[in-house]
Amino acid sequence: MRIVAIGGGTGLSTLLRGLKNFSVDLTAVVTVTDEGGSSGILREELSVPPPGDIRNNLVALASDENILGQVFNYRFKNGSLNGHTVGNIILAALTKITGSFTEAIAKVSDILAVKGRVLPVSNDMGRLVAEFEDGAIVKGETHIVAYGKETGFAIKNVTLESPLKLNPAVKQAVEEADIIVLGPGSLYTSIIANFLVEGLSQVVAQSSAVKIYISNIMTQPGETTGYTLRKHIEEVEKFAGCTMDYIIHSYPPKDDKVLEKYREKGSEPVTIDVFHDRIIFGHFSSVVLDEDYRIRHDPLLTAQAVVNIALRKVNVK
């Protein structure tokens, strides 16, 4: 069974951690518009595609996350390397050595013995441009989220500053896929950002694969404040250029203290305002400790929901 999962960093890597436990041929397609933190510094100073989201997904698919995975995810806390992760630096170095971001990813994949493939949606880096409801045009992922938080205005549309060509390996993977999964992850900056690359929406729309969208559990301040489940689905389908066959939506964990912390930061559980046979509701989330207590999709429960759909709908040759 060939599964292509499309997204960004944290959300997609969570799904991959679950899917790698099943007997599937797995390809992760990752956005190249990240500009935050270490990735932002490396892309600006070294002119390499942002490595952070790629690193997250490579580590998620590593055969042994406990040793090499920890090394690649290690983040320096002080000195001139403050904020950088070891994996980001290695990917940047290999990109310079080989002259190819894709080749750098392939070499790291060998080092980590990843169970599947991780592909950048394009071999070049891109910059997001958002138009807000007040007419403001904001460039750059971090600036877009910051503007949304500061003003409270919603995103009206997103584009790329310059056109990006689709990675040919991504095109082939999508054409051969039995299942295409979108998300989980930030709606605009992790999922939709991929569909701004020339050709991806067309190849996904033309694919006969079963298409699944894993929706957000919580709204994201600066990006999806006030968005309901219906709004999430509408935006994904608009940019993907096709209707999703299934939507997986998780109820938030029943943890009032954690939910209250989210509310204090302007985040709420996504309101369910649409019911349909294609929407699969369930408890696919958990609270994890990542510097603070955070609500995340549970890797195994979410992956199992995807595989259950696949087993019912896909006739693997």
Rank of each mutant, 00 (worst) to 15 (best):
E235M: 13
E235I: 11
V236G: 05
V236P: 08
K238W: 00
K238T: 10
F239W: 08
A240Q: 10
A240H: 04
G241V: 01
G241C: 07
G241S: 07
G241Q: 06
C242K: 12
C242W: 12
C242E: 08
C242Y: 13
T243N: 13
T243R: 15
T243G: 07
T243C: 08
M244E: 06
D245L: 12
Y246S: 12
I247W: 13
I247H: 14
I248G: 08
H249D: 04
H249N: 10
H249L: 07
S250E: 04
Y251F: 09
Y251G: 02
P252N: 01
P253W: 10
P253Y: 05
K254R: 12
K254Y: 07
K254N: 05
D255M: 10
D256M: 08
D256E: 14
K257H: 09
K257N: 03
E260M: 10
K261T: 00
K261D: 01
Y262I: 00
Y262C: 00
Y262P: 00
R263Q: 13
E264C: 08
E264M: 13
E264T: 10
K265D: 02
G266M: 00
G266P: 04
S267H: 00
S267A: 02
P269T: 01
P269N: 00
P269D: 01
V270K: 08
V270R: 08
V270N: 07
V270T: 05
T271S: 05
T271P: 01
I272A: 12
I272C: 07
I272L: 15
D273T: 00
D273S: 03
D273P: 04
V274H: 14
F275Q: 11
F275H: 14
F275P: 07
H276C: 05
D277S: 12
D277C: 03
R278E: 07
I279R: 10
I279E: 11
I279M: 12
I280W: 08
I280T: 06
F281G: 04
G282K: 02
G282R: 01
G282H: 01
H283T: 10
H283G: 01
H283C: 03
F284A: 01
F284I: 06
S285Q: 07
S286D: 09
S286L: 13
S286I: 14
V287I: 15
V288C: 02
V288K: 12
V288L: 11
V288S: 04
V288Y: 10
V288R: 10
L289H: 15
L289D: 15
D290R: 02
D290F: 04
D290A: 05
E291Y: 15
E291F: 14
E291N: 15
E291W: 15
Y293M: 11
Y293T: 03
R294H: 06
R294K: 11
R294W: 05
I295E: 03
I295W: 03
R296K: 15
H297E: 05
H297W: 02
H297R: 08
P299N: 00
P299K: 02
P299E: 01
P299V: 02
L300K: 12
L301K: 13
T302N: 07
